[in-house]
Write a protein that binds this DNA or RNA. Structure first.
Lengths: 125, 125
DNA sequence: CTATTGTGCAACCATAAGGTTGCACATCGA
DNA sequence: TCGATGTGCAACCTTATGGTTGCACAATAG
């Protein structure tokens, strides 16, 4: 079994949801907003974006499902904030993947340097 | 800039495509496949998956657009492989984000410890 | 030459995703 | 109490996404 791979086999399906949650610029912007500006209500958060409050609500729900943010009611407002625990988990996750990429790149170098793919000399056309 | 945020402001829209490309389990599996099993043709790569060759083709194209894989023709076959350079870039990227998360988490702690439900600056109306 | 194998392309489908509008309802201020 | 403000829900629209099937075409094996 080779050990250097882009994701450990067992968790490969685990990473996708996290990446998917991060794979939208509006959501990344929201995370940025929360991390730099602190917690905020929906209307507050949507004030900076070109999209509607409703859209923001949906995105927050996605982030919430991914465990990246949490919300709490405060009077008639609902305040959203980053979720430290999950965020730390995701953080570790990215670190691990990052490290595995490193190893994968090493293997890749060997590939290229040693024996590409036994390329047939006249393979072009 | 000593500001701790989840993503640097200017690049926030840059990360999304990468994450989006990684946000699918079939594609992650493909990357895993390529990183552990080395390069392979489409039919070869799709032999291990429950989906059709055509679906794999599409996924490879997505990964290719994200710069994570590259392909080269070899006779009548087309061999796909990881793209080292871009992969390294993405690697750095994840590292950077990972680090920023770390900083963001620090700020988060202060939030919680100092002022539980602090009003974001400028929240008055 | 002919059959086989490997790709590529295109059409098509179902569902999810991102977004909008509209409206009901809760809560706060005066 | 009444109006203003903040949310939540639901319907709806458009486009992307993930997937399939079918077929044409290139290249290789006999």
């Amino acid at each position: 079994m080779s050990q250097a791979s882009l994701a450990s086999n067992a968790r490969v399906g685990d990473a996708a949801p996290l990446f998917a949650a991060l794979g939208d610029k509006t959501r990344l912007r929201l995370l940025y907003r929360l991390s730099s500006g602190g917690p905020g209500s929906i209307t507050h958060l949507s004030a900076d974006t070109p999209v509607t409050r409703q859209a923001i609500t949906k995105h927050l729900r996605v982030l919430s499902n991914a465990g990246l943010v949490k919300s709490s009611r405060r009077g008639r407002e609902r305040v959203w904030d980053l979720e430290p625990k999950r965020l730390a988990e995701a953080h570790e996750y990215l670190d691990r993947i990052s490290q595995q990429w490193d190893e994968a790149l090493d293997r890749l170098k060997e590939f290229v340097e040693n024996d590409p793919v036994a390329e047939p000399p006249g393979a072009s056309r």
